[in-house]
Structures are given as structure tokens and as C-alpha cells.
Amino acid sequence: MSDLWYQLKKNKIAMSGLFMTIILIILAITAPWIAPYDPYEMAPDARFAEPSLAHFLGTDQFGRDILSRIIYGSRISLQVGIISVGLSFVLGTLIGVVAAYYGKWVDAALSRLTDVMFSFPDILLALVIMAILGPSLTNLMIAVGIVYTPIFARIARGSVLSIKNSLFIEAARSMGVSNLKIMWKHILPNSMAPLIVQVTLSFAFAILAEAALSFLGLGVSPDTPSWGIMLSEGKSWMESAWWIAVFPGIAITLAVFSFNVMGDGLRDALDPRLKNESS
């Protein structure tokens, strides 16, 4: 673990991603203390206030402080990201590993299932699931999680297939190492890299999906400070009050960017063969 940290530390871009991610987490945790205003509090006399000393990032059409809403919004974004991506990661990896390791009809059945899910556009599939489950934040996270499961399954399957026949797996078998141990100690660690990269990418997508679904009224309630809702609501005021949409947009962009570069850095650091290259 200290090794991993050492590797990651050498990668400046990845470190900046990590740094921003940590800031995001701190924001989410300390929101009630650092937010200058109540994110729900409307102030009719301060509607459409431009960024100023009183409101660093301005206010929206109801006079709510945008900075405070963004700080609170990080809670929703992180929550949706962690839970839905966690769900799709665990579910997808399980499906992929089982399919690849056991092969034959198990593989055929699971692969067809994921293919079917793949053939729907992401948002449409999420909409269908939300329509069945009903609108709520929990259901939104479940829906997003299910939507991104096939991609994890597919990556895990490909990754496992490519190393399943490696000589070192055969060597382990020849020494009498059990199947479960081979999966856990040899196959999983060697198939992790692409999955971790996908985690960070999906994290970004999940934040966007939450925004889209919330906009369509299927996620959190419209007054909840969610970056997606802020962005989509602010869209209508782009010409007169650009700050309403732009700042949440920047927040989304930064979050997505930091997850992506961190993922890239992690992938490199996790691969011991690349270690010496980065020095």
C-alpha cells in the first residue's frame, strides 16, 4: 500500500486529481459548517444577484446562494457516485468473472443478458427502471447502478479471459492451489486495472446521469441542491444570468476531470511493470 502511494505521488497530474477529490469529500462532509447560507433559503430580494462579496458565486432565480448549493450538491453527487458505481462494480465484476471462469453456457447466458442491456441507450434504460421503481434518490442510485453493470461485466470478462490461460495460472494449478484462491489471488488482482479505470469514468457518468434524471423529475426533488438540477435549471437563464448554470457546470467538470486523472494515475501505479518507467 505504501508502495502504491509512493508510485502515485510521483505522478503530478494524478496527485492533482486526488487533491481535488479530497477537497470534494471535505466539502461534502463539512457542508453545514462552511456553506455561507442555507441552500434552501429563498431570498426574493436577492434574486439573480451577480457574483459579489456577499454571494461569491451569485444567486439563482429564487435568490438562493449558488456557492452554498454547490457545496451541498457535492454530497448528492458523491453519494450517487459511490453507491451506484459501487453497485455496478460489484455486480458487474461478479458477473464477468463468473462468466469468464466457468465459460460454456454460463458465459453464454450472462453475456447475452449484458448484451441485451447494452443495446438500450443508457438514459432510456435508467428511465425504464426508474419508472418501475418510482422516483426517489435511492431508486435513482439503483437505476444508475444497474445501467452501468454491463460495462463492468464486459470489462471484467475480457480481462479475466485474457489472463485465464496465462502460464502463471497454470503454474498455480500445477501446485495444487484451489480454484477460489486462483481467482482471488491470481486472476482478480491482474484484471483490476481496467476495472479501476472504469470506476472513475463511471463515477463521472453517474454524476451526469443523476443530473439528467433529476432534471426529468425522476430523481431528487427539484429544490434539492444537486449539481444536475442546478445546471438544467440555470440553462434557461444563460443569457441573463450565466452564473446560475456555469458554476455548477464547472463543479461537474472539475469533479469528472479529477476522477478521470486519478483513475489513470491509479492504473499506472497499480501495474508493477510500469513502475520503473515513471521514474
Partner: peptide
């Protein structure tokens, strides 16, 4: 039984690059 008896016969592989788990 095979698992138990594996210890009596072992194998050395051709490719010293592919036969060792790179993460161990």
C-alpha cells in the same frame, strides 16, 4: 486426492516471464 499429491510432482515452465504472477 490430486491436490494432496501434487506436492510429489511439480513443474518448471518454459517462459520465465509468463509463469510468474507479475503482481506477487
Amino acid at each position: 486426492e490430486l491436490k494432496k499429491r501434487r506436492r510429489d510432482f511439480q513443474m518448471i515452465f518454459q517462459d520465465p516471464f509468463a509463469s510468474l504472477n507479475p503482481r506477487m
